[in-house]
Amino acid sequence: MTPTDEAKRLETATVEVKAVSRWYGNVVAVNDISFTLGPGITALLGPNGAGKSTVLHMMAGFLRASKGTVRVLGQPAFGNPDIYAKVGLVPEREAVYPFLSGYEFVLTMARLHGLNDPAAAARRAIQTVDMEAFEKRKMGGYSKGMKQRIKMAAGMVHEPSVLLLDEPLNGTDPTQRLLMMELLREMAARGKTIVVSSHILEEVERLADNIVVIVAGRLAASGDFRSIRRLMTDRPYSFTVRSSDNRGLAVALLADASVFGVELNGDRLTVRTSLFSDFVRAAPRVARSADITLRELIPADESLESVFSYLVAPSTSLRTGR
């Protein structure tokens, strides 16, 4: 990144997280994280418990950073209610006021924002999330997806420049998900800064321009989706293999360029490879030419957790530029 790029990015930065740590008693939830965001959609990605909600809460001014600074639109986020005129928040928790109808809820939020025409703003927001059909129903009777949409309407009723959403795609069905993604993309196109937290990479891959990966309270990687994807796929994989002749297959596989380690363990063979796709193509070919029957080929560590922990492994310096 050239100095001019950096300067330009700081100029358009709407959210600045600088050397931020947060601990609860002795437990460190967030450990020395820095990044800046500008307009567009950013996904805060990480496994459950990684600290992404803590980071989002600090951006929303609901948690104080134990160390470092969090600034939103150039102002400190914590203890500064004035920022909410320009910042919207869609919390993860499902709790809503069950005794209010969807319309009353959004109208109440518009009034609390002190908008000039709260009724019109509420109607507009409800229309945007496509909830007009249910706006008169009490929220106590809403489905998870409806609650999610009405919370979204409440969070954007004042047309904020920065919209923070905590796991907004949880519990939505595919149709609602598409609608919500389209809506967020449309807001981003109008120059808004949208931050979405999620623990599912696939969920945000078509949504976010920029991804910030947080694992175990630390910043694991940040960049555009393609570079994160590359970090996640171009990495050593382990496979557990069962075959008619594990020892014979082990010898044969070692000759293949995609394999850099094998381990025999009872009736199981563990193979370490450098590239996922190369190995998956090579294994059947190698087995066939050695006349060995391949019974099972299981990637050993496919959980997102292991993908993420690979990203923070100290031996790899993977922080990419943006």
């Binding site: 609901f62 004035d82 909410y84 609390l112 924002h113």
Partner: peptide, 8 residues
């Protein structure tokens, strides 16, 4: 949250 995330 809904009350506190307002410029009041």
């Amino acid at each position: 949250v809904y009350l506190l995330s307002k410029p009041l």
